[in-house]
Design a protein around this nucleic acid. Structure first.
Lengths: 195, 195
DNA sequence: TAGATAAACAAACGTATGTTTTTCTATTAG
DNA sequence: CTAATAGAAAAACATACGTTTGTTTATCTA
């Protein structure tokens, strides 16, 4: 028989609060007491849901990857042109990580090496999502002297750095993605004209 | 009269050790005891040199900016072409931040918002260095639909993300800078041909 | 409606943290 | 040679941390 779950279960509130705090303050900068306060529990109560702080982080990470993947899959289905598909992905990605309450921000803010005991779990989760970017960049008809995997890493760096400087009133995620793609696109179309 | 300083002063050892640990473990992930152990002092002895942990971080930050600025100034003097100058800066920057013992890594790893009490000091320091990049990107003859300040932020993100994925055996900083510039350069030369 | 159990409370435990205070010692200026 | 003191040792302090333990409350199911 499957384990029963109560209707007024507050696991979701716990996860939401954790995500928000981990995203804003990082892993070490967030205490179990912070989380408990935020979701209206006592510190000890968290341990009914997760055996320890690290496991809680992994839980948030998993949900973050789930949300990101789902959204990206939905977006890139809207186009067939590889350039357009990449732009759609980047726009969606940026949109999710500048949203401060989002689980996605945690994946950007907390690096696997920040929490050695669960490093491998976090890397596995992160990689599960980055496959999308790998495929989209791989599908681009790039000039031969441009290493696709390096380009992918440049892109990850550029977009994941956005939360550091972006402020609510600034450019929209769509505008940002378009600017980013302009650099690449032009680079390509030039090459095409030469051949 | 200037304050006397003893010949066997170990302030430099303290700073070096702090830089290495902050770079590897971040601010919150590094304890005063870690630092003391690394430089062969007792925890309390650190407080003779700095009033608290935050001030110590600022000290490391300052030295990091000093080293980066000095090195970059020396490098970009080697060329006059704006593209070449930017490439020289990026190569030097990458070289310094992938070196794990470097002060520069701390500036990448520890974000101002990680340490609210000295946030403004850290931002001021960081900006002092980023002026170089601002000027170099500003000197590029870019097409009009390409926002230079956005481009600058993309570049910062891309290069500062490198320590996350780069491993000792991988591409050299020079190769990385060249790849990164290839994307931009081609973008430009294409535009030039069109006009 | 009785028994089981999901979900949280209440309160403490042991430890690690940044920091302070006091004491010692080796260098250096006079 | 000696007094002053830069610089570090030694040891503790107060607090904040992740976690554990024992207990209670509310919900579901047979």
């Amino acid at each position: 028989m499957a384990t029963a779950t109560r209707s007024n279960n507050r696991l979701d509130v716990l996860l939401d609060s954790s995500a928000e705090l981990f995203s804003a303050g990082g892993y070490q900068g967030t205490t179990m007491r912070d989380i408990a306060t935020k979701c209206g529990m006592l510190p000890g109560s968290i341990y009914y849901h997760y055996p320890n702080k690290e496991a809680l982080l992994v839980g948030v990470y998993e949900e973050g990857v789930r949300q990101l993947s789902e959204r990206v899959q939905r977006e890139i289905a809207k186009a067939t042109d590889p350039w357009e598909r990449l732009e759609l992905m980047l726009a969606a990605h940026v949109e999710m990580i500048v949203e401060p309450t989002a689980y996605a921000s945690v994946i950007i803010r907390v690096l696997p090496d920040d929490v050695p005991p669960v490093r491998d779990d976090l890397v596995r989760q992160r990689d599960k999502y980055e496959v999308y970017l790998r495929d989209l960049v791989g599908a681009l008809p790039l000039p031969e002297d441009l290493d696709p995997s390096l380009l992918r890493l440049f892109l990850i760096g550029a977009v994941n750095h956005i939360p550091v400087w972006h402020q609510p009133g600034g450019e929209s995620p769509k505008q940002i993605a378009r600017q980013l793609m302009r650099v690449l696109r032009r680079s390509f179309s030039c090459q095409a004209e030469e051949n």
